[in-house]
Design a protein around this nucleic acid. Structure first.
Lengths: 103, 103
DNA sequence: CTGATACTGAACCATCTGGTTCAGTATTGC
DNA sequence: GCAATACTGAACCAGATGGTTCAGTATCAG
């Protein structure tokens, strides 16, 4: 039925790292290059590239190489899958909570 | 302003592991003991206890020790924080997307 | 052409993570 | 009281993860 599992898997793994979440927030303000993303973290370009690659695999970020620059941006609607998953759980939690009152 | 960061941090870390997400789904159907949770994963009780402890620290699950049994259950509304965080990002992504069309 | 810029790939490293086993402790049922 | 049950804490381990450096390659500016 719901078969987005593989991507959701990658997405949650990608979101686990605070640096990557900060990158996502940064990209929320508009696209950026690897250098621009690496600079505020005082991180090597290689290091940032690895994070971006993970985010790409999780389909949260797309990139496009223009000349010698790689431009990174958020994928629209990328968070819907996991957002849905979480809300479903929240609904369950509320049901369980209510059940507890009437045993 | 928004200062739920520390918890959100733990929550995302907790959600990164597929076993833990499965445990959350399982708890969505109602409370369970450590043994009950460990069994379907063919995992040691110690192993499962570690997962539960993480979920407790992330404030996604609460537990209560009754006699020699530990009962685990979902925390209602626990996912609101991260769900909100994700939706905000999604809104940003859509703005960025629209901006791209009109440079 | 030349040098600087922007990235990339390979190799490496320390630390974190998800799991285990083993030896307890506390409860429960007979 | 005794044995089985349910968990817990400590110690350990293999592999993943987040980072680095170094030696390239490709592009751009002068």
């Amino acid at each position: 039925m719901v078969q987005y599992q593989a991507t959701v898997d990658h997405a949650f793994a990608a979101l686990a790292d605070p640096t990557r979440r900060a990158v996502l927030e940064r990209l929320g303000a508009g696209s950026a290059t690897i250098s621009e993303l690496a600079e505020p973290f005082a991180m090597s370009l290689t290091g940032m590239r690895k994070h971006i690659r993970l985010l790409e695999e999780a389909e949260l970020v797309t990139t496009e190489k223009v000349g010698r620059v790689r431009r990174c941006m958020l994928v629209p609607y990328a968070f819907e899958g996991i957002s849905t998953w979480l809300q479903r759980l929240d609904r369950f939690a509320q049901v369980v909570e209510r059940t507890k009152g009437a045993p």
